[in-house]
Amino acid sequence: MSGPPPELPIVLLDALMPTAQRLVLNRRGSMVWEVKSPRGHYAVKVGYPIEATPDYPAQPWTALAPAREGAVLHRLGVTNFAYGEWDHGTWNFQPWHEGPDLHELWQPYRTGTPLIAPHTGAALGCAEALAELHTKGWAHGDVQPAHFIIGPERTHLIDLALARGGHVPEGYDFPFRGCLVHYEAPEIAQSVLTTGEAEPTQAADIYALGASLLISATGWRAVEYPDDAPRPVQRQAVADGRRRTVRAPGKLGELIEAMLSHAPQDRPTVYEVGKALS
């Protein structure tokens, strides 16, 4: 997919007839546009396979991720979206959510001297968004600060391509092989190391939310490993529980510590997190 700037596939141009479009992301087998059209204001996702390199194997699943997310959105009862296929993979479009992500919103807190405790309203909004998904019987599988969009009225939890909890058409499904290691729970990391795959769980989502709150509030990830360490080395550090000593300030720090408990059964539920924050 190298060469000139990417363009929206013809099928999406025909469906949306954009009046304005902006390329937001183009990396790791995924392109995302912000598109305004007579039909509405959308996030448009287009997937394509990642080709093999001398250092990394091919990743064909990225071509399926937009359609898989579309199938999840359908199961969750979301409206005003669509998904389908194009020449190199799959696509979806869904409502655009305006606002900063959690990491962006809390930037002033982690750069102050000394660190001050963030206002917990945003953290509560993240917990409420995750609780909405958990209530429907799903686990997100890829909770991270960039996936919480703090809107003017509510917080939106986005990027559901890895979610598990209901039927997904076989042609669009693929195994879960972990997510961004900074936010992987120890049991997920260990399973990926041992078998190459894992099963997202709501308890793992809680760990990821705790890690997201920690790095957004302090700038530090939960587990210590070299920045340039290979992925298996990172995962082994997570599986072994090599936690940093850094804590978020205030009562938020105590809650995050519980969320980052090594054993899944020792973590609070999302409802207990919400109660503590409110």
Rank of each mutant, 00 (worst) to 15 (best):
P4H: 06
P4T: 14
L8T: 13
L8Y: 11
V11A: 14
D14H: 10
L16G: 01
Q21W: 04
V24M: 15
V24C: 13
R27W: 04
R27N: 13
S30G: 12
M31F: 03
W33L: 06
E34H: 15
S37Y: 01
R39M: 13
V46D: 01
E51D: 07
E51Y: 04
Y56V: 02
A58N: 07
Q59M: 07
A67T: 15
R68W: 11
G70P: 05
V78F: 12
F81R: 07
A82E: 12
H88A: 14
W91D: 00
W96Q: 10
H97W: 06
G99R: 00
G99W: 00
D101G: 10
H103D: 09
E104C: 09
E104G: 13
Q107W: 07
Q107Y: 10
P108W: 03
T111G: 10
T111N: 15
H119I: 04
T120N: 01
C126Q: 04
E128I: 08
L130G: 05
E132A: 14
V143D: 02
A146F: 00
P152C: 06
T155F: 10
T155P: 01
H156D: 09
L157G: 03
I158Y: 06
A163R: 01
R164Y: 04
G165T: 07
V168F: 02
P169D: 02
G171E: 15
Y172F: 13
D173F: 02
F174P: 01
P175A: 05
P175L: 08
C179F: 12
E184F: 03
E187I: 11
A189Y: 00
Q190F: 05
V192G: 12
L193A: 09
T195A: 13
E199M: 12
P200D: 07
A203N: 05
D205W: 06
G210H: 03
A217V: 08
R221H: 12
R221T: 12
E224P: 00
Y225S: 10
Y225L: 05
R231D: 09
P232M: 12
R243S: 06
T245A: 12
R247A: 06
G250E: 11
G250R: 13
G250A: 08
K251L: 10
G253E: 09
L255C: 05
I256C: 02
T269P: 00
V270P: 01
G274A: 06
S278Q: 08
